[in-house]
Design a protein around this nucleic acid. Structure first.
Lengths: 203, 203
DNA sequence: ATTATGAGACTAATACTATTAGTTTGTCAA
DNA sequence: TTGACAAACTAATAGTATTAGTCTCATAAT
């Protein structure tokens, strides 16, 4: 046939749209082709394989997520920035469930390419934590802890592993989780520097 | 042919063995049949479908995980129990990667059956937290936070999302994460009861 | 001892997935 | 006008799960 004006970008956009709609991190090539009005194998004129397509969507998702985090924490510092980051993180993960799932299902230890693409995910949180005056090593540790809490919370909630309680209680649990991180961080800083942090909540 | 003495239990055991070996949370029926010396469709004489098989393995994994946690924390209380639990949790997740992944990939909100099977996962941690004298609601919140940290940490590590540092540093990050939880918990208890907890680490 | 029944194996076939090979066609440029 | 490439197509392969229907062996009943 020839030109329908189809490009890799259009395919990726359609895949993203699909993922956003379904909340699933994947789309079958069949479904994707159907939506684009072509037959499945024709997709291979524009993409190498599903893995490559996944990478493209992954990159898009990362960019969105990072931009969202940057915007949410811009101009904020320390505890306020931490809270804003946590809120933005949670909001993105729930409003873009499929994209978040994709981000959290792609990389594995061996996949250097995915790892590299995901590196920007660290920037904002590292900047926020560095602002507390922590050593570089401590920042590395605490960004792990922070991101572990955020992802762990969303993941468990997503999996249905929180049981019993409704949305209101979940909100409170989230607040407690963030407070827990901040309390732990303040205590950690105090141990490291011997100084009680001025921004510590003292309720 | 007739009786080879094959049972559902043998199939599940073989699947578990496979999962333990590969670290993957799934086994294909083809591979499973090959290992058992039968043809794929013959499996359906003993199992309903892959979903059912998954449930069986899921149940086994949960039981192992729970027993492991109980053993590890038996006779321990408060911070010591929390640390022991965290250690056991991490050890199980890394030594039984496939089973842990399975546990963390099965349930979703709609799946009431899986949810119910997973409930025992709460018992040990709830018992430990209840011992701090928290209200029932607080226990519910804090078990979420605790399990979120534990799973978040393992998940991020498993995904390769921790970057930069080697195994030694990871160990330190884990210790910081657990300390962070305890500091946060102590602070939370202090807020709730007005009493500084006697077991609080004061390094 | 013979036979009948049923559990549990088998083969064959269907319906999804991704992917490759090879063919056709439409458009644009020489 | 024509030639060539891009990009569509059809056809086929291979790996998943699953169902239908067949065959056979071991055991239980006559």
């Amino acid at each position: 046939m020839g030109a329908k004006g189809l490009t890799k970008e259009i395919i990726v956009a359609e895949a993203v749209s699909c993922i956003e709609n379904t909340g699933q991190p994947t789309v079958s090539l069949h479904e994707l082709a159907r939506r684009l009005g072509i037959k499945t194998p024709s997709l291979y004129n524009h993409i190498k394989n599903t893995k490559e397509l996944q990478y493209e969507i992954f990159q898009y998702a990362i960019a969105q997520f990072v931009a969202n985090q940057r915007d949410a924490t811009e101009g904020k510092q320390k505890d306020e920035a931490v809270r804003a980051f946590a809120h933005a993180y949670y909001t993105f993960a729930t409003e873009h469930r499929g994209l978040y799932r994709l981000i959290m299902s792609i990389p594995s230890e061996e996949d250097e390419r995915a790892k590299e693409m995901a590196l920007p995910l660290l920037d904002t949180v590292v900047a926020i934590l560095a602002d507390y005056g922590l050593s570089e090593e401590s920042v590395a540790h605490w960004q792990r802890v922070f991101r572990a809490i955020l992802h762990g919370f969303i993941s468990q909630e997503d999996l249905g592993y929180f049981y019993y309680y409704d949305a209101v209680d979940l909100k409170k649990s989230r607040a407690i989780a963030v407070d827990c991180f901040l309390d732990g961080l303040h205590a950690g800083i105090q141990r490291e520097t011997g100084i009680k942090h001025e921004n510590q909540a003292d309720v």
